[in-house]
């Protein structure tokens, strides 16, 4: 009976994951491997292609700050998308059984500390060693192009690529990802909720990947790497705030990053 409860928790979280994160790992991998036929993504590979592809970004409703500099403009689009992604993660968090029963301030703390880690994990399936899907899979941005941006923008994505390429070798399924995201969100909670979700993840990984030894331990280990990536990311954004006098940081992202590490 206990295993049945854990399975139903896994099922519930997968349903919620599919509802809030429509670009699943399975879909992203299909796009990246060119299995979507005529619907291949627009490719950002140099500065010239950046304004050309902006119509794809516009069509998903992102607000752009008026600025002539294409890099800053792109950076604002990324911020808007990140804020929207935070909203999606919040809705997912609210669907984790027991989460909304926690004190509201505790919910805020869990989200504040977990949300960037969740976003990085969710980004991993959208990446391969050559680049990343953005804008709901409508654009593929090459890694080389991101490395060619002026400092400090060029330093933003490389650590995420290095992490993602390694993380993707674990070959998790969407159903595993749903549970792992819940584990990350609840990892700072002190009630017994986190234990139930992590036991469900352990069981799920054993069922889904019977030949992959120690997969649960390997997945949990990734949380340590993630913490470092988030710390470095927050420091980089804080540096940007000081050095880019024209740059505004989205108020929601400011809230999350203020006093975070």
């Amino acid at each position: 009976p206990e295993a049945a409860d854990l399975r139903s928790l896994a099922k519930l979280l997968l349903e919620s994951y599919l509802k809030y994160f429509p670009l699943t790992k399975a879909k992203a991998r299909a796009i990246l491997s060119g299995k979507t036929g005529d619907n291949a993504p627009f490719v950002y590979h140099d500065m010239k292609s950046l304004p050309e592809g902006e119509r794809f970004i516009n069509c998903v409703g992102l607000v752009q700050e008026p600025t002539d500099e294409v890099q800053l403009r792109f950076f604002y689009s990324c911020q808007s998308r990140s804020a929207e992604a935070v909203r999606e993660v919040t809705e997912f968090a609210k669907s984790i059984p027991g989460f909304v029963g926690l004190d509201l301030n505790d919910q805020v703390t869990l989200l504040k500390y977990g949300v960037i880690e969740v976003l990085i994990i969710m980004w991993a399936p959208l990446m391969n060693k050559d680049g990343t899907l953005i804008s709901y899979g409508q654009i593929f941005m090459t890694r080389e192009f991101l490395k060619s941006l002026r400092k400090p923008f060029c330093d933003m994505m490389e650590p995420k690529f290095e992490f993602s390429v390694k993380f993707n070798t674990l070959e998790l399924y969407d159903s595993d990802m749903a549970l792992f995201l819940a584990v990350i969100i609840l990892s700072g909670a002190i009630e017994e909720l986190p234990e139930t979700v992590s036991t469900s993840l352990e069981l799920q990984l054993k069922l889904n990947h019977p030949d992959s030894l120690q997969l649960f331990a390997k997945v949990l280990q990734k949380m340590t790497d993630l913490r470092q990536i988030v710390t470095d990311h927050v420091h980089l954004i804080q540096l940007l705030k000081k050095t880019e006098v024209d740059m505004c940081l989205h108020p929601l992202l400011q809230e999350i990053m203020r006093d975070l590490y």
Binding site: K94, V100, E255
Partner: peptide, 20 residues
């Protein structure tokens, strides 16, 4: 609470992308 007012709002009710 003031420091995290958007997060509070997101947790208490859904906010549309436009409002964000």
């Amino acid at each position: 609470k003031e420091k995290h007012k958007i997060l509070h709002r997101l947790l208490q009710n859904s906010t549309s992308p436009v409002e964000l």
